[in-house]
Design a protein around this nucleic acid. Structure first.
Lengths: 219, 219, 219, 219
DNA sequence: CATGAATGAGCGTTCATTCAT
DNA sequence: CATGAATGAACGCTCATTCAT
């Protein structure tokens, strides 16, 4: 059976365009959208200044292109999860958590850009896209929860948005504060690449504890 | 009994300076630091452009002044909490949560500015200030937790930073997504000022559930 | 007989005003008129910014005041020289040279300001003052020369302005290039205060040689 | 025989850049560096304000570019003079004087800028360049003088720097005071272009008289 | 398809000056 | 008599974008 992942159909960019997107992502993440000039991007990417407007139309549209490109990878791949009959509802939630943490750690740069954009939401196009994304994720989450409720494993009256916010919020906050995390636990944490793995494990387990409390009858 | 709140000693600004700070806070929150020009601030505040440099030295120092002014109000007033002998450890945690949610809702604008600054941390002076703040809050939290552990009410091996991140993350995420919260629960939520109250209650209760899971023996 | 020197009637300034003039002279000499802000002057002089406009009317008028104050001391005191019957014409010239070198070294700061102003002559008031000064000095010089010519000691057809320019030009150029002078003759020149004395002697003797060539029959 | 003039290798500017340099030279000469805004230059040159930073990087670098461009033409072309065996030492000095006067009159604007910069020397890059220039010219002059001394035509103990200062100083002073020169000798001087020629002749002859006095045994 | 040249607008800042006290 | 507060204008510079080639 053919399974066309969404990004399969997404507009495909040339290598140069991808290079621009990657550079833009990095700079937007570290200096913010307004703090990054197209000169910065062009210089860092080793391309002509005019290329960005040429390829993407404008700085704003470059940002949109970045969001379209990156969010297509971020969408929770949950359809198969919903259909799955072998996993218990909470096991599915766990898969979801694993997936989200994994992606957030993998794509930290873009997550920073996204978080910043959500804060300011100056670009209506992107706001729309993000709203759609949130809606979809919330719907998926709601369905998973409903399934657990039907099976009697999850309690009633679960606030879906607060539940989403819990997952997203802890992840974001932890990603943002990695340095502080390292600093505060300096003797207990590994360094380098192991740190990422360690933080991923801790974060995942922590969120699972939270979700158990949110979803199960007696927290 | 005399109780000198921290802001009692804080540098006091003239009415005009406070007006500038307030306007800057609002615009920084909605358009970001780099997206806000001093002309924007001056116009919105109804003052001359030159006044900002005149009063604060530079745009950057205005930002720092804003942080110094606002963070003095944000510090968790926890000393008395620590000394208190009537409340159980978890009741103290609850006070902490109430306090934090209360402040975050009250001072949403500045929280947005702060979150954004934490993401980009381009200003070393502010980063230092924020680090100090995080450290202090983490230390307070650690002490509260240790107390609970000594009394046998909290489990061992609590990750202080993840615990902090849970509270802060959920609050931030919820504040940032208020519109989505309203939209997603549109039939169930009140509007206007009641919404703020409702979200505060929900958020507080939600976080208490999470903290119970984090701190108590069986999650 | 009463002899009221010109500066006798000059406007007398308060101590504070003199302090401002002194500071302005120094800064104008080192950074130029346009490169010096009244803030610079006020800060360096330890007075309020508004004082300058208050005392002198404007930055421009401060400059004029400086010129009026300083040029009154610079005018060649030549009247008595002209009347003197004991000195030979060339001895009188020598007195003139001594006097001019002495003053230029003594008042280097102001000479720099004056040279700069002569170059740009943006201020008509000052230009007028300087023209008057030049005219007077040229007239004096012309008279001295005429006296020498009458006595048959100086040749005819002496170009007065070129003669003035020779004296002034060498002095200026040497003052301006003191550092280079020191650098180029590093082993042969004394340091510190002696350097000033040494340069004064060399300069005076040098100019006397030049004037002998200019004025005497066979060069 | 190939004769690569120094400017042959100098960085070549586009016509527009040369136009900017020319305009900047003129305005710097008449209003000073700090008294000239890049807006002034842009307006006078009929180009966009941004072009100056675009072409030269900054106002300061424009100034440096001007100095580099113009000083390459100013260097005394003396090598061939030194090797020449037909001219007497003093004839060589005369060539030098002619050359210098010629250039100063031709390039009055730049000479004013240079004189001003020497006075204030705020730009270290330019100061370095000027020092190099002065050093070179002094070295050349020293060599010429030494040659004359060896041949027994020039006296010993000639102060090279004072000698240089004499030439430069008189030229500068005369250029600066052209208007006064004209005014003082108003009946005797031609007007318009002839004035330049007349002043050049007078100046050259005058300096030759001075140099004869400086260099020959009995002044 | 790609790029150096060029632009108008706006940036944060500093200017000399004025004004209310 | 003296000064802190305040101002409009201008400063040098950088911005995102356009255009001719």
């Amino acid at each position: 059976m053919f399974n066309f992942a969404p990004e399969f159909f997404s507009m495909s960019y040339s290598e140069k365009q991808n290079q621009i997107l990657l550079t833009a992502e990095k700079l937007f993440a570290n200096k913010g959208y307004d703090g990054t000039s197209i000169r910065d991007i062009a210089e860092e990417a080793g391309i002509n200044i005019a290329m960005i407007s040429y390829y993407f139309g404008s700085k704003e549209k470059l940002m949109q292109a970045l969001f379209e490109e990156r969010t297509s990878h971020i969408k929770l791949r949950i359809e198969s999860l919903l259909k799955n009959t072998e996993l218990t509802p909470f096991q599915k939630i766990e898969v979801l958590i694993n997936d989200h943490v994994q992606k957030a750690v993998e794509r930290q740069q873009f997550y920073k850009v996204m978080l910043c954009e959500q804060l300011l939401n100056k670009n209506p196009e992107i706001s729309k896209l993000l709203l759609e994304l949130k809606k979809q994720n919330a719907d998926y989450m709601a369905e998973l929860i409903k399934e657990g409720q039907k099976k009697g494993e999850f309690k009633k009256n679960v606030d879906v948005v607060l539940t989403m916010n819990t997952m997203t919020g802890v992840i974001m906050q932890t990603l943002m504060n990695q340095e502080f995390y390292k600093y505060y636990n300096n003797t207990k944490t590994p360094s380098g690449k192991d740190f990422h793995e360690s933080i991923k494990t801790n974060l995942t387990n922590h969120i699972k504890v939270l979700f158990k409390a949110i979803l199960s009858y007696e927290a």
